[in-house]
Amino acid sequence: MDTVVYVARRLFYGLMLMFFVVVLNFVLIRLAPGDPAEVIAGEMGGTTQEILADIRATYGLDKPVATQLAIYLGQVAHGDLGKSFFFDQPVARLIGTRIGATILLVLTAQFLSILIGVVMGVFAARKPNGVVSALVAVFSTLGYALPVFWTGIMLIIVFASWLPIFPVEGMRSARLEGGGFVHVLDVLHHLVLPAVTLAIIFLAQYARLARTSMIEVLGADYIRTARAKGVPERRVVFHHALRNAVLPILTVAGLQFGNLISGALLVETVFNWPGMGTLAFDSILRRDYPTVMGILIIGAAMVVVANILTDLGYRLADPRIRTEGGRR
């Protein structure tokens, strides 16, 4: 299948998914006990009749449900995610100021966990009964069982309190002199602990997967052929085998994106990282539903985009899929 057609289909399908996410949001607000206008305004107290009337007018709450849904979909399609009555700001702008920090955290953690996981997996695969293999096995059980928010707190206690190497929380130091580069270093310094915390849970899965997949690939005929031809072992492992072994890791990496965002939510709360997770936490405690729902929509959109990018990456990494033209 032509790549352009493929991308167009994937985008269309992604838009369909997003349509249903928005519909789900709409349904949830209506299912919640109480007057939708009051649900949207939040349960902060001090909600005036004017605010409620304003909400009823904006969302058309006096009109039939179908019209309400159409109004809501229209708003979201125009990038209007509603207004946060607690923060007194449009939700889209609120999220806009936070989304960068979350993307930075999530991508760094994803990169770290895949990189270290694959390296560990490759070393483990070369000696399936060796020390590294045993370590990978232990690690993957630990990674599955560690509550991510607790891991973060433990890292703070050890590496920010007992050994004050890293900052306790936040993303930037309050007062910092110097040029742009100093600021970049400062953010990176703040990024280490949250990113490592988030990477630990996923690292284990990638290591395990890389190990299994490498062992499988290293047993294949073309590897034996490469060795028989006298290709150096390093080249066999890293050039011939690894390229095929990373394919299942790519698939899983794409599927993990939703979990990664869920994990980031907890990690951000622990480290007071100024991203969408802390925003979600603050707005949920304040019953600020427009913000919470906006974050759910944007979070889902991030997963959809990540899935499309993963599929494209898969097509680039595995030419067979392009020529066969089949969908996985």
């Binding site: 998914l17 949830l28 939703g258 729902m293 759910l296 979070g299």
Partner: peptide, 10 residues
């Protein structure tokens, strides 16, 4: 597609 923890929170 829905981030599970966020959805559960909602």
């Amino acid at each position: 597609v829905l981030p599970a923890l966020l959805f559960a929170m909602v």
